[in-house]
Design a protein around this nucleic acid. Sequence first.
DNA 1: CCGTGTAAGAAGCGCGAGTTATCATTGTCG
DNA 2: CGACAATGATAACTCGCGCTTCTTACACGG
Lengths: 296, 296
Amino acid sequence: MTELRHLRYFIAVAEELHFGRAAQRLNIAQPGLSQQIKALETELGVPLLMRTRRRVELTAAGQVFLEEGRRALAQVERAEKLARRAASGEIGRLTIGGTEAATWVVLPQLVREFRKRHPNVDLAIREMPSPAQMSALRNAEIDIGFVRPPLGTEGLVVRTVLEEKLGVILPRSHPLARRAEIPIIALRNEPLVVHPARPSGWAEFMSSICRSAGFEPRVAQEASETATAVSFVAAGLGLTIVPVSLKGLVRPGLVYRPVAKPAPTAKLLLVYRSGVVPPTVAKLLEVVRELWPELT
Amino acid sequence: MTELRHLRYFIAVAEELHFGRAAQRLNIAQPGLSQQIKALETELGVPLLMRTRRRVELTAAGQVFLEEGRRALAQVERAEKLARRAASGEIGRLTIGGTEAATWVVLPQLVREFRKRHPNVDLAIREMPSPAQMSALRNAEIDIGFVRPPLGTEGLVVRTVLEEKLGVILPRSHPLARRAEIPIIALRNEPLVVHPARPSGWAEFMSSICRSAGFEPRVAQEASETATAVSFVAAGLGLTIVPVSLKGLVRPGLVYRPVAKPAPTAKLLLVYRSGVVPPTVAKLLEVVRELWPELT
DNA sequence: CCGTGTAAGAAGCGCGAGTTATCATTGTCG
DNA sequence: CGACAATGATAACTCGCGCTTCTTACACGG
């Protein structure tokens, strides 16, 4: 069975056209080299070298084998190099999940910086609600998620990235729009637009804010995306609460008003599978740590 | 040092994701396989497999190494295959030298047939006079030559391919043009166009024909190519003798007349280096043998 | 909690890669 | 022309390491 040793030896002989010098270069004795070359020729069933007692030269087959063998050796080295680079996180694949809000605030900077540092990592982003991210993480569909609490954390590592203030999006003509800040309790009898249409952390979170302010929210309309929810607000169906990062969703006729203190905050969490951390994930965590120094 | 064994073993494990089955497939026992894989990982300085006592899976580096390693192994096989094919003459390079006449008669059919049978042989043709071919052969600039006698044959194998009749090319208005055949002796006082401008077997041959007919040729003009010689004939500078294969060189105003019997003939010889016959040369000789059955 | 499956560890063996010593051939030089 | 140098092949040996068998250490399922 052909081994790389055979290739290395043959290439040395083919380059030196001299068994003695080739053996010296390979740090072995000449007879062993002769034996191995002969073994290679027997394996191939083809002479690679013309030995004319005094001079060594390549046969046609030898010339071809030299060229192709060099290529094979280079490919092995390439495999080794790429494996090492993959292990150090320089290349590879990384799929990130993010909520709607995350695609507005953290992901743009994060992706830009990460791409700059690790251009050979194939980066994919999937927008999905927090609960979906949790199962996607466990199924290894995504490697890192940016989610809203609460969440089940077994088997996962969690880290707070942002702690955002909240605000209300409402029509400019709405009475509450005249206030600079809006206390949660003022929403007591207002129709709210939420989006529990698919399992969403934010809908849950909105409800809990209202409940801790002492009232049960009055759900006027359900939407699947916050962007859709804002459309319904624009249509006059009610108000909605958003994290400040989604302030940019306001449209003509709508206004954003921060929630008055004492205001609850919405955390944005980074989660990934515990255990062995793949190098690409480690590289990304490093970038996150620099861009958003640890909270707590 | 990484060996192909390591690649083969790793690929087996990566495909089976099971040391026991992989070992079975490789016809070795499992512990040896574990040892070799570990040696490979140590060599690379990188873990390729995640062993969780119960399950084996690839790390990111392992996935990369699997893919690149497969490619490396394929390249080795490719090298082996190509070397074997080169030895059997299926691929390779072959340079053929030919006189002007050869490019008219033997080479067209020969090249067409050879290309059809051995499309992967890189075939080059170089038109050159016989003496130049002889030295080109010895310098290994060409592998096979088609030449005119006489020649020094030491170190070469010679074989007659064609034995051609001769003819005279002359202006239609020339008195001799009225004859159907022309005896050599009739050229006694005619001005002849020859081409000794560069060492050429044909010029030599023409002179010897005249001498054996009993007269010294009257050289009117020298030319470097037979085609040029014919131009001079067209210009009215004299006559020239050509092998029948170059009959096609006649132009408007010129005619070709065979030399009358008893007519000398011009042999076209095939020559190649004696000793070990490269496979591509052997393949070509085979085609020649079929197209032009041996002349004694 | 034990039986089964699975990989790693320990220890020994045997092949073969590499070693030294020697030969055979051939080109070179006095 | 004979002695010598150069060079690759051959012979015989040895020692490392690749592979073996035997065993251990877990992890999971019933």
